[in-house]
């Protein structure tokens, strides 16, 4: 099986064209990017609102726990039956798993800013919008990035399901390999997804270090 994988990876023909490894990697990243972007657009404002005002904390916790429990492949299949095959069903399924970690990160980051700091900002005449943008968000950045990092990893790992329907991505190797009892190819998919996840996680860790206003908060 390992040999099959190595010979697959060693074959130059598998590195070119629309079914080649770079193309599949690109597709995988594209689906993941769309999902994380959409999830951020939903989760960041919501998390800021709840963290800043404290309204709806209970609903947030229960709702995001419910979202975490949803099986992505099942959701995607259901969406395919409702909407037909296409890019939307897998991306929506991925958005659903990306929202909880981002929401939790943003909410926790904003809610945990020292009240004294917020009070001080208010005392020097800052309005709520400025407090959020210039005080709370910068201080919350490490936790926000942590949530984003978790979301990206989960999405990268789960984006393989897109290949269950007619899309590409690294899951193509896994589904095609399983269908043909070609476990070398399955392993190619698994190893590439793993490698992609590790590389991205490393890059995000670096990014968190560079962007963080206080390094001690990031490297705990």
């Amino acid at each position: 099986m390992i040999n099959d994988m190595l010979s697959y990876l060693g074959d130059a023909a598998n590195w070119t064209g629309t079914a080649g490894i770079p193309a599949r990697l690109g597709e995988h990243l594209w689906y993941s990017f769309l999902a994380v972007l959409a999830a951020s657009i939903i989760a960041v404002p919501l998390g800021v609102f709840i963290g800043h005002t404290g309204v709806g904390k209970v609903i947030l916790v229960s709702a995001s726990n419910v979202l975490r429990a949803l099986p992505s492949l099942g959701i995607m299949t259901l969406l395919v039956l409702l909407m037909g095959v296409g890019l939307l069903p897998p991306v929506i399924a991925l958005v659903l798993i990306a929202v909880p970690p981002i929401l939790a990160g943003v909410y926790a980051g904003v809610a945990n800013v020292e009240p004294a700091v917020v009070d001080a900002a208010r005392a020097i005449g800052m309005k709520d919008s400025r407090i959020i943008l210039q005080v709370e968000l910068p201080l919350a950045l490490p936790l926000i990035l942590g949530g984003l990092r978790g979301a990206i990893l989960q999405v990268i790992a789960t984006a393989t399901i897109a290949a269950y329907v007619n899309l590409g991505g690294l899951g193509r190797y896994i589904f095609d390999g399983l269908a043909l009892y070609d476990y070398g190819q399955v392993l190619v998919g698994a190893v590439l997804v793993t490698a992609l996840a590790l590389v991205l996680d490393g890059l995000l860790a670096l990014l968190a270090r560079v962007l963080s206003p206080d390094r001690r908060l990031v490297s705990r």
């Binding site: 990092r149 978790g150 990893l153 989960q154 590790l198």
Partner: peptide
């Protein structure tokens, strides 16, 4: 640890 664990458990 968590991401690493996630990645390993995928394999």
């Amino acid at each position: 640890k968590l991401p690493l664990f996630a990645a390993l458990s995928m394999v």
